[in-house]
Design a protein around this nucleic acid. Structure first.
Length: 558
RNA sequence: CGGUGAUUAGCGCAGCUUGGUAGCGCACUUGGUUUGGGUCCAAGGGGUCGCAAGUUCGAAUCUUGCAUCACCGACCA
C-alpha cells in the first residue's frame, strides 16, 4: 500500500473530548472517528487491526470445535418475551418498531436467537454437544458511553453458545473454551489474566472473566501474591478474621461529639430495600460493614433477602423508619433484619450510630447489645486481606474485561423449550454455556497496554502493517526511489503487509506518523547507506536502529 | 437520571466582561525553499459563531428556552 493511495487520517493534535489514552491514540492514529455518542466509524487502518483480532479469535474458536454462524442484529420482541428478558432487561435494550408497528430489539446479545435456532434444528442427543459462534455487531444503549470504543454503544463481539445434555459435558466444553481463550490472548500478545467472576443477571453457575491488565482498567481484580488465584473484586471472598472475638469490656455509652476514632473500630450501617419470598421489593434491611471497609453491592444483591437490583434507602425512607439522618443509623434496636459483615461482626467495643440524629454509641458489642443479626460476607476485599485460596495476601490491580465465559445452565433452554430426545426416548431440556469476547474492545485494550509518548506500539500479531518503508528524499534521488520501490515489490510479493510512504513530506513528519500508527518495523531507505547496499531498520518496540543488507530484509519477517 | 462544563473553519482555541465588518495556530490549495526527526517565505480557499425565540438601529457577545457533546456520580455481561 502506498500512502498516496491510502487514507492515513493522522492528527497532530489530540481531540478535546478524548479522555483515555487509547481513545486519544485511536483518533490521532486514524483508526476510528466518532459519529455520535458511543458510535464509531472504523477507518481503514483501524479496520485492519479489528480484522486481525477477529481472525485470531475465529481461528482459535474453530480449532476448539466451534462452528461459525451469523445471526441478525435486529431481533423480534417475541423471542425476548419468551425468555422473559423483554421485562428484565432495562433501557439498555434498544427497542424499535418496524413499519407494521411490530416490536423489535437491537440485539445486545444472542441467547434467545441461538436457543430458538437450536431448539428448532437439533432434535436428538446424537447431535450433541454443539458449540456455535458468530462475530457480530451488538448494540447496548449504555447510559453513559465513554472511553471511545472501550465502552461504546455499538461494538463488535464474538459470542459462542454451547449446548449439552449434561452438566458434566458442559463443564468439559467450558474448559475447552477456557483454554481457547488463553490461546487467543497469548496470540494477541496481551498481558491478560483469567479471573473468577460473578455471573451477574445472566444467571447460572461457574464463570470467568478475561482481563487485559492496564492501569486505566474499569474493573478491580483481586490477586493472591502467592498463588494463581485471581477474582473480580465483586466476587473475591472476604474471609472471616481468624481467632475469637475480643471480650466486651466497655459499657454502651451515648456520645455526641466524636473525634479521632479509628475507622477500624467503627461500623457503618446501610439501609437497603429488602425482598420477600417471591423476590419482590419489600421493606428495609440493614447492612453493616466496618468503618474502613466498603459494601460490596454484588455480594449484597446476591443475598435472597435483598431486592435486586440493590437499592439504597432514601433519606426520607430512613427518616420515616428510624426518625434520624442517614449518618446516624446503627444496627441496634432495629425491627428490620440486620446483616453484618464478617469483619464487622468480629469487632468488640466499637462505635456505631444510635438511630438518633447526630448521636452515636461507643463501647458497643454484638450479642450483648444486639441479638438479632446474621453474619455474611458483604464487603469488598482490600489489599493485604488474606487470599480466599488460603495462600498469600490479596493484591489489587486494574483490568479491562475483554472476555467472559459462563456456564449458563438451563435458564434459556427452559424458557425457550430447547430440548432433545435422549437415548431412552425422553424429552430433555439442554444445558448451555456462553462465551463472549469483545473484539473491538480488545483493540482499545491493546493500546492501553502498549503505547509510549510517540504513539501506539502494537503487538506484532495485530499491527495494521507489518512494516513501513520510509524513503529519504525520494524526489531528489532516483536511486532511493528505485531501491525503495524494489523493496516494496519484494516484500509485497512475499505476502508481507508493507506501507510505502511516498508522500512528499519531510522525514520527521513520516517518522512521527509511523510511530503514532505503531508499525512494528520501519525500513529507512536513504542515500547514506545505499553505497553499501544497506538500509536502516528501526524497531518500534525497542527503538533500536540497525543496518541490514538490502537482500537480507526479507529474513526479518521469517 | 442528578451535578458540572462546553458548543466559534476539518482539528485545537481566542474573541463575549464593556453589542458595531469573525480572528489565531495546525491542517488544506498554489508557487518557491528545505530534505535523516513535525523547515522557511509568499499568496489563497474555507464560517447559518449548536438551534429557536426575545431585547436592540445593530447580537458570536445580553435574556429565555431547547438540542448535542463531554466530565463526576448513579447505572452496567
Amino acid at each position: 500500500m502506498h500512502t498516496s493511495q491510502y487514507m492515513l487520517s493522522t492528527l497532530k493534535e489530540t481531540p478535546a473530548h478524548a479522555e483515555v489514552i487509547s481513545h486519544q491514540l485511536m483518533l490521532r492514529a486514524g483508526l476510528v472517528r466518532n459519529v455520535a455518542s458511543g458510535l464509531y466509524t472504523w477507518l481503514p487502518t483501524g479496520l485492519k487491526v479489528l480484522r486481525k483480532v477477529e481472525n485470531i479469535v475465529r481461528e482459535e474458536m474453530e480449532k476448539a470445535g466451534a462452528i461459525e454462524t451469523l445471526m441478525p442484529m435486529v431481533q423480534p420482541a417475541d423471542l425476548w418475551q419468551e425468555s422473559g428478558r423483554w421485562d428484565d432487561y432495562g433501557p439498555e435494550l434498544l427497542r424499535l418498531n418496524d413499519r407494521h408497528k411490530r416490536p423489535f430489539v437491537l440485539g445486545p446479545t444472542h441467547e434467545e436467537v441461538i436457543t430458538k435456532l437450536v431448539s428448532n434444528e437439533i432434535n436428538s442427543y446424537k447431535q450433541l454437544p454443539l458449540t456455535l459462534f458468530q462475530v457480530q455487531t451488538k448494540f447496548r444503549d449504555e447510559i453513559r458511553p465513554r472511553f471511545g470504543v472501550m465502552r461504546g454503544r455499538e461494538f463488535l463481539m464474538k459470542d459462542a453458545y454451547s449446548f449439552h445434555l449434561t452438566d458434566e459435558c458442559l463443564k468439559k466444553t467450558y474448559q475447552v473454551m477456557f483454554d481457547a481463550y488463553c490461546r487467543i490472548f497469548e496470540r494477541l500478545g496481551l498481558d491478560y489474566r483469567p479471573v473468577i467472576a460473578d455471573n451477574g443477571s445472566i444467571g447460572g453457575e461457574g464463570s470467568h472473566e478475561f482481563h487485559v491488565l492496564a492501569k486505566s482498567g474499569e474493573d478491580a481484580i483481586a490477586f493472591s501474591d502467592e498463588s494463581d488465584y485471581a477474582a473480580n473484586i465483586e466476587k473475591a471472598e472476604a474471609l472471616a478474621p481468624k481467632g475469637t472475638r475480643p471480650e466486651a469490656t466497655q459499657a454502651l455509652t451515648e456520645a455526641t461529639n466524636l473525634t479521632e476514632i479509628d475507622a477500624k473500630q467503627t461500623v457503618k450501617t446501610h439501609l437497603v430495600v429488602g425482598a420477600d419470598e417471591a423476590g419482590e421489593a419489600n421493606g428495609l434491611i440493614a447492612l453493616v460493614v466496618r468503618g474502613d471497609h466498603t459494601l460490596n453491592e454484588v455480594k449484597a444483591e446476591n443475598l435472597a433477602q435483598i431486592a435486586s437490583p440493590l437499592t439504597l434507602a432514601t433519606d426520607e425512607q430512613i427518616n420515616d423508619a428510624l426518625g434520624c439522618n442517614a449518618a446516624s443509623v446503627g444496627p441496634f434496636g432495629l425491627d428490620i433484619p440486620v446483616i453484618v459483615d464478617r469483619s464487622a461482626a468480629h469487632l468488640a467495643n466499637f462505635t456505631c450510630g444510635a438511630n438518633k440524629t447526630d448521636i452515636h454509641f461507643t463501647g458497643a458489642n454484638w450479642d450483648r447489645d444486639c441479638q438479632n443479626y446474621t453474619i455474611a460476607d458483604i464487603r469488598n476485599v482490600v489489599a493485604g486481606d488474606p487470599s480466599p485460596c488460603g495462600k498469600g495476601k490479596i493484591e489489587i490491580k486494574r483490568g479491562i474485561e475483554v472476555g467472559h465465559i459462563f456456564q449458563l445452565g438451563d435458564k434459556y433452554a427452559q424458557a425457550m423449550k430447547c430440548s432433545v430426545l435422549t437415548e431412552s426416548g425422553k424429552n430433555q431440556i439442554l444445558t448451555m454455556g456462553c462465551y463472549g469476547i469483545g473484539v473491538s474492545r480488545i483493540v482499545a485494550a491493546a493500546i492501553e497496554q502498549n503505547h509510549d509518548e510517540y504513539g501506539i506500539r502494537w503487538p506484532k500479531a495485530i499491527a495494521p502493517f507489518q512494516a513501513a518503508i520510509v524513503p529519504m528524499n525520494m524526489a531528489k534521488s532516483a536511486r532511493v526511489k528505485e531501491t525503495a520501490e524494489r523493496l516494496y515489490q519484494q516484500l509485497t510479493q512475499a505476502g508481507i503487509e508493507v506501507l510505502f510512504d511516498d508522500r512528499k513530506e519531510r522525514p520527521g513528519v513520516m517518522f512521527a506518523d509511523h510511530e503514532l500508527i505503531g508499525t512494528p518495523v520501519l525500513l529507512v531507505v536513504g542515500e547514506r547507506n545505499l553505497d553499501n547496499q544497506e538500509i536502516e531498520v528501526k524497531d518500534r518496540i525497542s527503538g533500536e536502529k540497525s543496518l541490514i543488507a538490502i537482500d537480507k530484509v526479507l529474513e526479518l519477517f521469517n
